[in-house]
């Protein structure tokens, strides 16, 4: 049995800082593809570029909502932690929040602020340990949806519900959006898989029907005119990542997660 070294805590905390300061290359490419046609559109693009420059120069987070950090850890069966990884991360992140210039965005019911992550550990057939981080702000998180659909619903029906949710989300979660879709298993797992799908690091859109659903949603969402920053220009949805699992014969759970254009995802391997 191989024990995972405590150095992993430093690696995760440093990666959290880096993903909070450096813009997603995928999103950057998608945003800069769009050529502004009006003064307001130009103002948005210029502000986006300037924000990236200032984050790099001043080492400030791209968004003041440094989010709730989710840490997904896939470990081979012969690896283990001999310490409480969530507890160690909580201590380190809380002590670095001030120095990093992050925000204590987590509050308990006594009104105490912190910056505590959630850690999920699951076994896999991998040969090494894979750790995926996703920091997500409250605005896009508030757009999350769970639907328990009729099993007779088709992929077209699912796409229609997703696109309707995108339309209803308006500009509340900082579009352009990335969508994570989880279909199947129970209500709990469909939400979990939609979150994994959203990271883009867990084999989404691999199966034919996943790819088909993703393409259909991307195509249909072109009719939603919310656009960049809610200003009505550019695509509202720039990526759709789908994971579909088996389901109970009487159920069809569908979960939808939104990410804002400040996609903060990182991966490391041990």
């Amino acid at each position: 049995m191989k024990k995972i070294d405590k150095n992993v805590v430093d690696k995760i905390v440093n990666l959290y800082r880096e993903i909070s300061i450096n813009p997603s290359t995928f999103v950057k490419k998608e945003i800069l593809k769009e050529k502004p046609k009006s003064d307001i559109e130009k103002l948005f693009i210029d502000a986006y570029v300037d924000n990236n420059r200032l984050s790099f120069k001043n080492r400030t987070p791209l968004c003041q909502d440094t989010g709730h950090l989710s840490v997904f850890i896939e470990i081979p069966s012969n690896f283990c932690f001999d310490f409480d990884i969530e507890d160690e991360l909580k201590k380190r992140i809380n002590s670095e929040t001030k120095k990093f210039g992050f925000r204590y965005s987590i509050i308990d019911f006594k009104g105490k602020y912190s910056n505590s992550p959630s850690v999920y550990i699951f076994q896999s057939k991998r040969k090494n340990v894979k750790i995926v981080l996703m920091a997500k702000g409250g605005g896009s998180e508030n757009l999350s949806k769970l639907f328990m659909l009729n099993p007779s619903f088709s992929l077209e029906d699912i796409s229609e519900i997703v696109v309707k949710s995108v339309k209803e989300a308006k500009d509340r979660g900082c579009p352009p959006y990335i969508l994570g879709i989880g279909v199947g298993k129970s209500s709990l797992e469909s939400l979990f898989f939609s979150k994994l799908a959203l990271t883009g690091k867990f084999n989404h859109n691999r199966k034919d029907f996943e790819k088909k659903l993703s393409e259909k949603i991307l195509k249909d969402s072109l009719n939603v005119k919310t656009g960049f920053g809610g200003l009505g220009f550019g695509k509202t949805v720039i990526d759709c990542r789908v994971i579909i699992k088996e389901r109970h014969i009487a159920t069809l759970p569908l979960s939808i997660q939104f990410n804002c254009f400040q996609e903060r995802v990182g991966v490391l391997y041990l």
Binding site: A47, D50, N51, L54, N58, T60, C63, G229
Partner: peptide, 13 residues
């Protein structure tokens, strides 16, 4: 007034 979301470094500066 609308300020652009997701651009904390810009407004912070």
């Amino acid at each position: 007034f609308l300020a652009f979301g997701g651009l904390g470094s810009l407004y912070g500066s």
